[in-house]
Structure formats: structure tokens, C-alpha cells
Amino acid sequence: MSHPSHAAAPPVVRVRDLRVRYEGEAGPVDALRGIDLDVPRGSFTAIMGPSGSGKTTLLHSAAGLQTPTSGMVELGGADLSTLDATRLTKLRRRRVGFVFQAFHLLAALTARQNVELPLRLDGKRADPRRTQALLDRVGLGARGEHRPHQLSGGQKQRVAVARALITDPEVVFADEPTGALDIRSARDVLGLLRALADGGQTIIMVTHDPVAASFSDQVLFLADGVIVDHLRRPSAPEVASRMATLVESAERAANTVEIV
């Protein structure tokens, strides 16, 4: 196959007709109903949508943390459905950084040890200067030896951000990384993500906050498991007004269902 040099670089994340159905006791839930997505290298994408619209499910499926019901996910050219659990784990810890909605730090490890763990799991030695630089960058330079229970919610979130960056991943996924932060630390984390994206880092972030979304290059709006809208070079007021419309129509849909 030829590689035409004038073509755009291939997307880092490629998603085709992605569907996820949860088989619940109260009947199945279609969390994702056919998602197509191309995320260009070095872009900063925000995903917004009402609660329960499938944002976390999309992020987990795209990052190889959960197996979709059908459809295809490609990460850096690798088709995730062809990998077994161990190879998927190895690909994840090398090429993906993930900031979880619920932090997921190990209680026994210090902030520094938590940050370095993905590298160690991959059999690499952590460079203490690099760890320190990352901790400094998320504003926790003096907290490296603290354990998670000695940190506030926002500080834990920032440790999780540093951990997601330690392996220099191809993509960073972040599920509401500023949800637990005050305005100042949220700004700092968003500024950090923006700077990373400007330096060529691909970032996909779920958020409920229009201001956070305005740091991104493009916003995707998710409703009821499908992408219903998108906005390039978003500004906070624009994002807020689109979200208001979306939530309103979602509510109207919910009410209709109730009446029927």
C-alpha cells in the first residue's frame, strides 16, 4: 500500500459503529447506539452530554477498558478486538493514559509511587526527576510522599492526572478530570492539558463544565448513546447554550416516555 505524503496523518483513535448494550435485570440498556469517531493526533476533544448519555461508556470502550457489544475501536492503528486481555493491558499501559472519574489510586502507595506505577508495571525504571517535574506541573511538588488518604479530593485527582502522563501516552483519556477541583486548580489542570495538546499530545476529555470544554479544539455532544452535535473552537457561552438545548430535549423525551 502506498502512503501519499499529502494525506492527513491517520487518526490516533478510530471508532466505527460502536454499540454497547448492558443487559440489566430491568431489561437491556443501550448505552451507545452506533458511534463513529476519528480523533486526529495532537487534538484536544471534549465530550459533553446529559448524565447517563453514555460518555463514560464511550471513554472506557475507546480506551480498551471494556469490550463493546459490537463495532470497532482502533488505537494507534491496533484493532482492540484482536487482542487478548494481557496484550490489551500491555497496550493500555504503554499507549493510553486514563484519568478516572473516581481517581483509583492505591491506598498503600505514596503519590510518587502511584504516579510511577504504570512505568514499573511495564518493566521500566522511573526517572525521579521526571516524576518530580510532573508532580510540580500538577502543583503537588511538595506532596510526593503523601498517601492518598492524606490528600484532598482535588489533590488526588491531580495525582491521577500525573499518573496518566508518566508513560508519555499517545492518547490521554480523562473522565471529568476537573469535577472535584476548585476553580483555580481546575484552571491549572485544564491549562496543563491545553499545553500538552499544543505540544502534540492527543487528549479526549469528558466534562459537564462549559468552561472546561472551551479549552478544547472541538466539543462532541452525546445524547442517548449517539453523537448529536459538534462544535469547533468552542467558547464557553456557545457550549452552555447548546448543552441547555440538549438537556431540555432530553427532558422532554423523558417526560414523553413517562406520559406514554
Binding site: K90, R92, A107, L121
Partner: peptide, 15 residues
Amino acid sequence: AEFATMSLVGSTHAQ
């Protein structure tokens, strides 16, 4: 829960 976190961070089951 701790084992689940290990797995999320990139630890294989064997590890």
C-alpha cells in the same frame, strides 16, 4: 477493589 485498581492502572492478572 484494590485488584481492580491495579488492573485499571495496567497490571496484568499475572502481575
